[in-house]
Design a protein around this nucleic acid. Structure first.
Lengths: 305, 305
DNA sequence: ATAATGTCTTTTATCGTGAAAAAACATTTT
DNA sequence: AAAATGTTTTTTCACGATAAAAGACATTAT
């Protein structure tokens, strides 16, 4: 097997959802832009849709014949990229097994266990290494540094440094900047979520990321913007394993965000600084409470504790 | 060809240099630690040294028979890792060709041009991407972001943030910390270099890196420590292309380092901050003067200007 | 003339393979 | 017994090959 066609399958599924809305599909290049794939993939999608009787396709005319049924969709798991599959497996091992700091990581073993080639695992590890959780020994194996309290503290230290600076830059942005409209929109979403927090608290994580990324972008510094990938990754998995008081935590965070947003809109640097610090402090505490032990104990131990 | 034996060749060369000093070599594990390679490689080295009549090898006894001659050494270029070879080729293209920002990078073409497999090029690009000079388009090519003024400014902004914090942490380290001895040793080296700056100015770059890495390490933050790799990489190539007033620049930098060191030893945070700022400011200016044009012009243009 | 479709070429993503190097195990020496 | 040497196994590194996907070129339709 050389390469899975997950790009095609994922785009196909997304295209199916488009079918519900219109009675005929746009041109091939337009569809390509819409789905974020090349025309080659678009044509494969159209070919299959014609085959399964979803559309009638003749050159420019692509008429929708019937609404898509559940079984028209490709199974979810077939639409994931290899990188996602490897990351998920790796993180599961990291969070679930006895993943002690200092433990060595075996590329071959990982590859066999996940059922992929070693090349993909190697590439994943190289990409993953920027998160600071693993480290390579020169012409030898990788070493796990562990999801420790030290890691969380180092991560949040940088985060605070970067976000305080970004928030200040944000507040100094001119009135005409489009970010203010983005911020207004995010504020509305926050108010909406705050009102329905009881049922929708699990939607916060996604909103949180969009909000902080908007702020970080104001720094106009690629290193700051890129660093948010590290934070996002950690918080993504953090949200998955630490469900304790999720509702309460998110409720508090939404409120903090609203204060933070108000501070930004006031352009008062003092207020911005205070609101930002307060929110980041509680974010740090949330993260830290899930890694209670000092030193070598891992996340699973932390959960058991 | 599956894998070059550069590890062996490099270790062999380094081992040859050891021969000059002693009349017999230590045990295999000891040699392994000394050279930073496994026993397997040590044994290959010993086997060849026996073959070429450099040593008599019988179990524990490894007697040196003759001094190594120049032709005993493997050629320098055969001791480089593939990663080094690819990096050098890539940087040469980046700095010498019409490497405009926005230009796309072709893995296959790069691999063919350098004469290596695509996998190695891919892995290199992934590793290299953390320097912020290239970016990947989802399931498509890499894009060059260009060695622009904006890049230099973003880089130095982070550097200043990180180093000011590290320097403050350094100054706050207790008397017993071994870093003070390291600092004393570095100070001596600086004084020595300052005295002979006329002939040894080109040795500064290496000393510079060791000095700044020592300071960054005081942050005890892996993200700060790791970020110095980005700075080191940029300055490494910067030193190679920008030879204008090299002697003068380095002379000034050595003097600034000495002030900086004195400030650290005084433990006076105000002084440390001032000395650090002053040095980083001139480092930034040095870097910026080699990228004079705003926006899209590249390094070669900059050199011509 | 512009923008679509149809066709062909190139590049990317992934695997299996084999040599280099590391690591593990077994045996001998001090 | 501890530490070395000798031997075998495992892992890492790098390649060529191949299908998926992107991209380029040619042709046709509005």
């Amino acid at each position: 097997m050389s390469k899975s066609n997950n790009v095609y399958k994922d785009a196909y599924n997304r295209c199916l959802r488009l079918l519900d809305e219109t009675k005929s599909l746009p041109s091939e290049p337009e569809l390509g832009t819409l789905l974020g794939v090349s025309r080659t993939t678009v044509r494969s999608i159209l070919a299959r849709m014609e085959e399964t009787g979803l559309i009638a396709w003749n050159k420019r005319s692509k008429t929708v014949l019937r609404a898509p049924r559940p079984d028209d969709f490709f199974p979810e798991e077939e639409t994931d990229t290899l990188a996602e599959i490897i990351e998920r497996s790796f993180m599961r091992r990291l969070l679930a097994g006895g993943a002690e700091a200092g433990m060595q990581i075996n590329e071959l073993e990982l590859a066999r266990e996940i059922g992929v080639g070693t090349t993909s695992v190697r590439e994943f590890l190289i990409r993953f290494s920027r998160f600071g959780l693993i480290e390579k020994r020169r012409n030898s194996h990788w070493v796990l540094k562990g999801f420790t309290r030290a890691f969380a503290l180092e991560l949040t230290e940088i985060r605070e440094m970067f976000e305080l600076r970004s928030a200040a830059a944000f507040a100094a942005l001119p009135e005409e900047s489009p970010v203010w409209a983005d911020l207004d929109r995010l504020e509305d979403e926050h108010r909406l979520l705050a009102r329905e927090i009881a049922s929708r608290f699990n939607e916060f994580s996604e909103l949180d990321e969009r909000f902080h990324r908007l702020i970080h972008r104001a720094s106009h510094n690629r290193f700051i913007v890129d660093f948010y990938d590290v934070i996002a990754m950690i918080f993504h998995y953090h949200y998955q394993w630490n469900k304790a008081q999720e509702r309460e935590r998110n409720e508090v965070a939404v409120a903090e965000h609203l204060v933070y947003i108000a501070a930004l809109k006031s352009r008062d640097l003092g207020k911005v600084d205070a609101a930002c610090r307060k929110h980041l402090k509680s974010a740090r505490n949330t993260l830290l409470t899930s890694i209670p032990e000092a030193g070598s104990r891992n996340v699973l131990d932390a959960r058991r504790a």
